[in-house]
Amino acid sequence: MTPPLLEIDNLHTFFYTDNGVARSVDGVSLHVDAGETVGVVGESGCGKSVTALSILRLIRPPGRIEAGSAIRFEGKDLLTLDDKAIRQVRGNRIAMVFQEPMTALNPVFTVGDQIAEVARIHAGMSKRDAMAKAIEMLRLVGIPAPEQRAYEYPHQLSGGMRQRVVIAMALVMNPALVIADEPTTALDVTIQAQILELLADLTRRLGTSILLITHDLGVVAENCSRVVVMYAGEVVEEATTPDLFAHPHHPYTEGLLGAMPKVGGTAERLATIPGTVPPPTVWPAGCRFRERCAYAWDRCATEHPPLYQIAEGHVSRCHLAAEPERRAHPHQPIAAQPGVTAA
C-alpha cells in the first residue's frame, strides 16, 4: 500500500495565552490520499483552521506545535524541515486558499503580478514567462478576458472573481495538495456553486488533492469523498461521505446533521445541540462532548473515549461503540437541564 500524500500524526497545537494554555488542536491524526478531496467539518473553535495552518507551519506565537506531533508529506516530516525547505513546500507542493479573498491578495499589486510572483519565486521564470503563466492560470480558473484582468487590481474584481484569482495563485505550481479553508463562506450561494464546481473540475483535470475545511455539511456532501468531523480540538468521527451521512455514529455528528435545516426538509422543529463548546483552556476530562450529549453516562465522565473502529474506514470517538445498547435510551443532556443556560 502506498503511503498517503499527507499524513498528520498526533498533532498538538497549543496557544499560550494570558488565560491559560489553549489546547486548540489536541492530538489530531488524519490523512489525505493522492487525488482525494477530504472534508474537515466542525464549528468555530473546534481546531480545524489551526490544523490547516499547522500543516504549513503558519502558526505564530503565542501558538506552538508541540513535540511529538508529525506531519508527513511526500516522504518528509514538515515539522522538522528548516525554514528554507518549508518555504519550498509552501505555495509549491502545498498551496492554501483562504476564506476571505480580499485579505489574501495584496491591494497594491495587480492580480497578474501576484500570480506571476509565485511562478518567479518557485520556478525561477522570467518576468515575461511568469506573466504569460499568470494569464494562462486566470484562463484556467474561468476568468473572462484574462489578458485584461491580469492587469487589474484586486479591488476592481468581485468577490467571486477574487476567489478565482486566489485559486489560480494556488495552482500555479501545480501543487500536490490544496488546503482550502472555508473557501466559499464569504461568497453568495450562486457564486459558491461556481467556485465549488471549479475546484471539483480542477481536481478532475489536474489530479490535485484537496483538504477542504468547512462548517457546511452541504458543501462536504457534494464535494468530498471522505469526511473528518472535529470537536473540541479532536477528531471525533471519520468516514467516507456516504457512510457518514447515512450512518453517523458520534452523537455530535448526529446533532450537526439534525441541526441543519435542509431545503426540502420537513421537520417542524430543528434538532439542537444544547449548550456550547467548552473553552479550549479547560477541555473537560473524559468525553469532551459529554455535557451536551443525550446518551452520556458515568463512563463518559471518567474515561476519555478512544477512536473506536465502527466499520471499514469508519471511526468514532464515542463509548457507544463499546456499549451500543445505550443508544436506545437517550435522556436530557446536562447542558439542557433546567438552570443551565443554553448558548
Partner: peptide
C-alpha cells in the same frame, strides 16, 4: 438558479445545478 445552488447535506442526491454566469 438560487435554489439549485444550495448544497444539500445528502451525498446521495445529485441535482441538476443551474450555474449562473458572471456576477450580480
Amino acid at each position: 438558479a438560487l435554489l439549485s445552488a444550495v448544497p444539500a447535506p445528502d451525498p446521495g442526491v445529485k441535482r441538476e445545478r443551474i450555474l449562473l454566469a458572471g456576477d450580480v
